[in-house]
Each structure stands twice: as structure tokens, then as C-alpha cells.
């Protein structure tokens, strides 16, 4: 099963995924299902933050995917794959490499079993209509593909409360405030994943 992190660029998908994995007690983040013969690279959370998080949008085009176990205290038990995707930009994209990565990300979205739609709670959704259109279209699609939740990241910042209220009104679905930096809301996020994971397993 795969839970896919989607959202616009720079909302903090990558940092959220890495810090959430760290919160779950994972020491090495690496590709899922490595071929047994090849030694695939893995990273510590600190290395992963340096490599996959950037203050500039759409810098990282080969996002991480990490297999995690949600069983308390465990590396055993059934695993869920957490998969990052490149941010979905507004407007047309000039670089072919970014377009290709975004298309691949959409492919993963279509195959997702669970969807975490990450939004930036510091950005007031009222001020950027283009960004708002992307989030509205993304949410409309996501909720019809798989069990989905809006994750409002950067919720530790000032003004997040207002933005989150607007989001709830606009998107009309469950919104989970979190902060990748302070780990606010990680317990709720874990609970949501666990419940959906339990419910969706055959």
C-alpha cells in the first residue's frame, strides 16, 4: 500500500515526510524494495533533509519513497510506503525535466491507496487564485481516487489559524494541521494513516 504526499511546490512535503519517518523511529531512509543484488543508497534523516529539502520550489525531482511500519515500536509487521512527489506548479512549466517529474508524480497519485494533500498554512489561500485553483483541482481529484486528507503544514507559524479556517471552508474536507518543523500534529497524522491502513487492508 502506498500513501502519496502531493501538493504545490515548497509546501514542505519532503521535510514532512522525512521528519515523520524520523518520528516513526526510522534511522535509514531509502528506496523501497531495493533489488537484492544492488546496494541502493540510503540516507540518515539529516542527510535526507540536506538532499531532499530546499527553500526553492521544484529543486528535487527524484523524490523519496520510504517503507514504514505503523505498528507501535516496530520495524516489523505490514508496511506502508510513504511516497513524496514533486510539487505541482501553477501555470506552464518551462523545464522539460520538471514537467517529466511532475507527470511521473501524477502517475503515482493515480496509483495511490491513500493521499496526503499537503498545503502551506502560511500562504493565505485567498491571495493567490492560481494556487487556489491547483489545490481545488487536486483535492477534487484526490478525494475521488483514494481516502484523502488535507495536511496543513507550517501550522506553527503566525496566521496559520486563519489560513486553516479558510482551507476548511474552501475544500470542505478534513484538514489536519501539522508542522514538519515542530512535529505538531504528527500523532494525528499517524493515527489517520493507521486507521486508513487498517480499513483498507483486505
Amino acid at each position: 500500500m502506498e500513501a502519496v504526499f502531493v501538493g504545490r511546490p515548497n509546501v514542505g512535503k519532503s521535510l514532512l515526510l522525512i521528519n515523520f519517518c524520523e518520528y516513526l523511529g526510522i534511522r535509514r531512509l531509502g528506496p523501497v524494495d531495493p533489488h537484492p543484488k544492488e546496494r541502493m543508497p540510503t540516507w540518515t534523516p539529516a542527510e535526507a533533509r540536506r538532499r531532499f529539502v530546499s527553500a526553492f520550489p521544484n529543486r528535487v525531482l527524484e523524490p523519496l519513497a520510504v517503507a514504514v511500519s505503523l505498528v507501535p515500536g516496530g520495524h516489523s509487521g505490514p508496511t506502508l510506503v510513504l511516497r513524496d512527489t514533486p510539487g505541482i506548479p501553477t501555470g506552464t512549466v518551462a523545464e522539460a525535466a520538471v514537467r517529466q517529474a511532475v507527470a511521473a508524480g501524477l502517475g503515482h497519485l493515480l496509483g495511490a491507496s491513500l493521499i496526503l494533500h499537503v498545503v502551506d498554512a502560511t500562504a493565505d489561500p485567498e491571495t493567490d487564485p492560481q494556487a487556489q485553483a491547483v489545490d481545488a483541482a487536486l483535492w477534487a481529484l484526490a478525494r475521488h481516487l483514494a481516502p484523502s486528507v488535507v495536511v496543513a503544514n507550517k501550522a506553527e507559524t503566525e496566521g496559520a489559524v486563519v489560513a486553516i479556517r479558510r482551507l476548511r471552508e474552501q475544500l470542505g474536507g478534513p484538514v489536519l494541521p501539522v508542522s514538519a518543523v515542530t512535529r505538531l500534529g504528527f500523532r494525528d497524522l499517524k493515527r489517520w494513516l493507521w486507521e486508513q491502513f487498517q480499513a483498507a487492508r483486505p
Binding site: 505541482i88 501553477t90 511532475v102 501524477l106 492560481q130 481516487l145
Partner: peptide
């Protein structure tokens, strides 16, 4: 999207529209 013929936001809207008609699309099981 790859070719730049569709903006991402348009792509999302098309995919949403298709979802009703072709529910199972995309890679992965």
C-alpha cells in the same frame, strides 16, 4: 504534461473528469 501541452492544473481537471469513466488508470497496482 510532459510535453508541455497541458498545464498541471488542466491535467488535474481532466484526470478528475476521466475518473468517473475510467476508474482504474495509472501505474502501480
Amino acid at each position: 504534461v510532459e510535453e508541455g501541452r497541458l498545464q498541471p492544473v488542466e491535467a488535474l481537471t481532466h484526470l478528475r473528469r476521466m475518473q468517473a469513466v475510467h476508474p482504474a488508470v495509472g501505474p502501480g497496482p
